[in-house]
Amino acid sequence: MTKKNKSASQRRLIPTYIFLVIVSFISVFPLYWMIAAATNTSTDVSRGKIIPGTYFIENFRNLISQQPLWGSLWNSFFYAILTTIVCLLICSIAGYGFEIYHDKAKDGLFSVLLLAMMVPQVATMVPLFQMFSKAGLLNTAVGFMMPMISTPFMIMMFRQNARAFPVDIIEAARIDGLNELQIFFRMFIPTMRSTYAAAAVITFMNAWNSYLWPKVIMQDNSAMTMPMLIANLITGYVTDYGMLMCGVLFCSIPTMIVFFVLQKQFAEGITGAVK
């Protein structure tokens, strides 16, 4: 009886399955195609070949002969990891401060900071470029991370999650003689590991993928990031599809790995501030 019910309910779900399979196919196919194209010659790609080929090494060789791939990969990793560490530190301690020590003045300040969410990147781009070039921060990792390490979104996320942090722990730690900073580092950070993981994933992804700001301040080829590098591959008149997709693949591998390994944290990071 129950079995019959089950199969009946599965049968009713057939249109759902068909729809989901189509949507999943459309979602995955462009990425599959990117990998297939990275292993084929440009001519094969433009003839519509979608099966992986054997030309990957040549595409890769062409790519490193034309573009500073290793340098850009290193830059992207270095900038993104540095940004993630500093951002987490600054935003988590701020979120903690706003929640644990909250009073009227701090709540007011918080709503003012939220207004920064409405400030578009293109509006701050020119003044920041002028400030940073005066300060000699063009082509530097510090220049890259400065506008990204304190965001209302991240502060809000940590503030929201700090709500679940038991006040008893703070009281007990104070009695034990820990000062406020020690409480944050020894009590709050270890307890909030999952929040930190989610925040780290989302910050790393954003930093790795950022394009407009690096394009503005990274003017030396040696300071270039991966998104900038692959964008350079289409500046010529003829596009080498195989080589281009090889570059896109290298730009995507790190974020793909993060996605597959830490998908749960990624999803939590996206929705983190709204719970």
């Binding site: 949507v23 979602s27 990425l31 793909m256």
Partner: peptide
């Protein structure tokens, strides 16, 4: 599968 496109950078998917 549906969530996967989020793993690509904006430049990457634009080029694809």
């Amino acid at each position: 599968c549906v969530f996967l496109p989020c793993a690509t950078s904006l430049v990457s998917y634009a080029l694809i």
